[in-house]
Design a protein around this nucleic acid. Structure first.
Lengths: 216, 216
DNA sequence: AGGATATGAGTGGCCAGACCACTTTCAAAA
DNA sequence: TTTTGAAAGTGGTCTGGCCACTCATATCCT
């Protein structure tokens, strides 16, 4: 049964270990030699599993220090994927659209939720919006969190990395107006308008990035 | 600069080699020992790179035969990431909703696509619908495929498995009517109606499963 | 001659041991 | 007290070996 692909078992074991031991992003996992012994495998085999996870950005290794569970901000994998998996426009487009799917679904979900419209969060949201150096990413992530779907949030977070940090940078004054409009529509629970305006902003942002050559 | 992470260089070298030598999916790539020699690198280090690519589904290794390039479109990225993202404590509700998100987005996408409405596929679709033992899953999968978003399709496929095979079984006569209505709305490019009816069917189906105790 | 069998080369799977380069720690020296 | 440096621990890499498996070839038996 377990004839070949032992390193795949190790990948699964490591995943289970991370769950059971409740290792959080940033935490250190046992050393290679230690893991190899407890799992009764050779160190080189164990390393094959670790390097695979590292290429995916799930772990981070630092020579002389150890191996750490990645905090999901490691984007070494973007390089690999953009040159390997995502080498055609179709795949790029898919990532972009799929991310949009989750974002618009989040807005839709928030609008459906009765309680959301009555929350005080929108005021504080606007307050931060006016503040200095408000990050574009914070705006979208906040919406994803408010949707209440943690799985969708996780998927979105991954897709965001794969699409070349689409929300890098701080918002301009023009964007603040756009965001305010979106928030107002959400408060009114007007999903159609909110989504339409969000989509407009998203596509405006994309054009802006292309104009500035901010690929990745 | 390139002090550490030699296996990453190998990953890139292999990619370049594949491009230069015009190796196509299904073709065999040089053996590990051979590659290690030409790249002036140890075999274990080379294997770390190969196993990483294998985990991503970019290559396929068969003991005693060799290593083969696989179709890059069949990359396993989503599958691997899902084992880490889809944790056991993930609420059933989130999985269910996220799957719905992708399904409704697919329908929306199809309706947006001008060409789709003029395709002949809908007739053959209906024909199969009338036939014997049409599987529920086929209906939804077909829609996902027609959306043209391969990534969304992959994610959906995983979520479907994770949410306990929600589309097991064949369609009843009542469901055929529902599906016909959905298809008609899609043909009219009436996304709102199509999605509403799909949602209605989806939730009816869920209740039906609960009634029959078809959990999982 | 033809089919079954044995053999050997080639391949990936895995392991043990050995260095190296690097970071951390902590005790000894200033 | 501060500085220094040696030791322990870690990941990075290579070597060489053995195993299990596949396949093509040669060999043997009928």
């Amino acid at each position: 049964m377990n004839q070949s692909k032992r390193y795949l078992d190790i990948v699964r074991d490591i995943r289970d270990m991370i769950r059971q031991e409740k290792i959080k992003p940033g935490d250190r996992i046992p050393s290679e030699r230690e893991l190899a012994e407890t799992m009764q495998v050779g160190r080189s085999t164990l390393r094959e599993a670790l390097r695979s996870l590292e290429l995916l950005g799930l772990i981070e290794t630092r020579r002389g220090e150890g191996t750490f569970l990645s905090d999901y901000r490691n984007h070494k994998l973007v390089e690999v994927l953009s040159t390997f998996v995502l080498q055609d426009n179709q795949s790029h487009e898919d990532v972009w659209r799929t991310r949009q799917i989750h974002e618009m679904a989040a807005i839709h979900e928030i609008c459906q939720n009765e309680a959301a419209s009555q929350m005080k969060i929108w005021d504080s949201f606007r307050l931060r919006l006016e503040g200095e150096s408000f990050q574009r990413e914070d705006f979208v992530r906040e919406l994803m969190v408010l949707s209440g779907n943690r799985l969708s949030l996780k998927i979105w977070f991954l897709l965001k990395q794969y699409s070349g940090n689409p929300y890098d940078g701080t918002v301009s004054s023009e964007e603040i107006d756009r965001m305010n409009d979106i928030l107002t529509a959400i408060e009114r629970q007007d999903a159609d308008t909110a989504i339409r305006e969000f989509k407009a902003w998203s596509e405006w942002l994309q054009k802006e990035r292309i104009r500035n050559g901010n690929y990745s």
